[in-house]
Amino acid sequence: MNLKETFAFLEERPAKDCPAYNCPAGHLVNLMQALRDQHGYSMLVDMTAVDEGPGQTPRFIAVYHLFNLESFEYLRIASACEGDESAPEIPTVSHIWAGADWHERECYDMFGIRFKGHPDLRRILMWDEYPYYPLRKEFPLAGFDMDFQAADVAERTGVRIQPAPMAGGPFVSGDEGPMSEKEPRAKDQSWREQHKKPGGSGPA
């Protein structure tokens, strides 16, 4: 069965493991509803996003993995988020699958994608006041220097949220350039002896 015949707006997406399609964000909800009700994809097993990197359009791609409980087939639907880089948007599917609720919250937490119509879009893994979106490509693994979230604990102990030291590895040597010129080093080079620690200004 080729889904493209039924849904003309779909666009095939290269994949080795399972059928995969790109879907415009505007059609996403209708498509998902139909896939669940008429095509047997009754389970949303996973929902996530991919960041294509700063400056790319579209920058954030939401990726859904559906599972068919009758034919035991996976299906991947990818949908580019609308809106500009700082506030990407996509409609929610949490009314179709209750499980999407948490997945979407996680995506919001990690990428800052806003899910239109989500009943309770809050951070889920980081604490509520956390200002950054860690899985965006420009965010360094080490994190940024900022105040500890509980002021009284910070005052008593002097603890701060500090960039983690990357000096100990793990080391990777890059893909470009001749072998002789690539010393293996930590991928996150946001701070070293030469560079200062990333400072604690506002959200990225």
């Binding site: 893994l125 860690p134 693994l141 080490a142 994190g143 940024f144 102990t157 603890v159 030291p165 990357m166």
Partner: peptide, 18 residues
């Protein structure tokens, strides 16, 4: 010491608070 988790989310050693 934070161990193998050198990342934005992990306190690098509990001796920073206790």
């Amino acid at each position: 010491s934070g161990g193998m988790y050198r990342s934005y989310a992990v306190l690098q050693g509990v001796d920073r608070i206790l």
